[in-house]
Design a protein around this nucleic acid. Structure first.
Lengths: 213, 213
DNA sequence: TTCATATAATAAACAACGTTCATAAAAGGA
DNA sequence: TCCTTTTATGAACGTTGTTTATTATATGAA
């Protein structure tokens, strides 16, 4: 009975076609142009057809955003070669920020937009996001185990680092940095990150060897 | 010639009525329900009339969000009584976060939403936001002057603190914290903030010879 | 093959939205 | 009074996302 299998295969193929087209529109024309109707037109089907394969538009967006996580994770992996956990953590921040600022629409989709966010909540699962979070979490744990960070609640510390870089990215992407002249912005971003990491180095690096109470 | 004055007064009155109504809808039914048509219906005018008083919807939203800044600033002022600049900075973070989480829709309007952001950029001026930023900036400067923070670029340091708390608020409001069980979330938020401030205290407090009472 | 049934696709409509424009009404100045 | 400017609007335009009734197609059984 190969027919049901073939049907299932065709169904997956159609879902793939819709997503591939949505992605192409997304990359070529930006998020605003990803509409159900445009996707339909592009694949030469009626808009209603898309609703036979996806519950609503959010489901399409949600599927899209996982592609972004692939790229983010790929970039995260490049820092594995840094041995010092604290330096790696610093690089982690830089890599995260460069991904966000080089792919602002992806970043928006992954971490800011409402649509995918709702899907994430209702599915109570966020596979793509969790892998990246775990990667950061491990980095933070290694810092703690090496005595480079205070051993407080691991998730709280991880969230602290994550929210720091997310805050920087989100304020820039959503244009709330008008108080900084545009030509100084990248210096301020780097300065903000260095400032934070600098506090840690100062607080733990030298102090751990010399004076300890 | 008092007529032009009266006209001007009536014009301001109408603008006020539109904004007041938009605000009421915003607070009563949430952001989604603030539409030009709903506002018009509420004040018993035609939708087209609103465009005689505001250029577009973003201009209405932009006007709305300044109300949010009034409240934020009010809350910021309550920390003035804290003498130790570093403790004040810590309180600053707590106050900021409690504002954000108690008024998520306001916060969204002020710091996340696209609409007002565009208006901010095109006006190259952000009165309401700048006052709050300046307040934080002064706090950071006082920390530096008291030797409690390293004297690096003031704006970079200020931005670092701001983006930290913004990141926390934005990730929660836009529902990207599904990895934390809901009942632990507030503990993690406090933990993340304390973690950061703790790093500073540890790195600078004792080194400066000042201890907590 | 033939026919009923399940599946796939669509055209058209619905209900919103922001926005514009020609037109009508009112107010003001002469 | 007459003319001009201001103020208001109804209706329309061009978008959305989504639903529904209808048609075409493919399938399984007779």
């Amino acid at each position: 009975m190969g027919i049901t299998e073939r049907k299932e295969r065709e169904r997956e193929q159609m879902r793939g076609l819709i997503l591939k087209t949505a992605m192409r529109l997304f990359l070529r024309e930006g998020f605003d142009k990803v509409t159900i109707r445009k996707i339909a037109e592009e694949i030469e089907y009626s808009p209603a057809t898309i609703y036979l394969y996806f519950k609503d538009k959010n489901e399409v967006l949600f599927a899209l955003h996982t592609e972004g996580f692939e790229e983010l994770y790929r970039r995260q992996l490049t820092i594995s070669s840094v041995n010092d956990p604290l330096k790696r953590l610093h690089r982690h921040g830089e890599v995260y920020l460069s991904f966000a600022l080089e792919n602002p629409e992806y970043y928006d989709l992954m971490f800011i937009m409402r649509g995918p966010g709702e899907k994430i909540v209702e599915e109570k699962e966020w596979g793509a996001g969790l892998r990246s979070y775990e990667f950061l979490r491990t980095n933070v744990r290694e810092c703690m185990e090496a005595g480079l960070l205070p051993r407080v609640n691991l998730d709280a510390a991880t969230f602290s680092f994550w929210s720091q870089v997310h805050g920087i990215a989100a304020l820039i992407i959503r244009e709330r940095c008008v108080m900084f002249p545009k030509e100084h912005l990248s210096a301020i971003v780097n300065g903000a990150l260095d400032f934070r990491m600098g506090l840690i180095m100062k607080g733990n690096g030298p102090m751990n060897g010399k004076r300890r109470k």
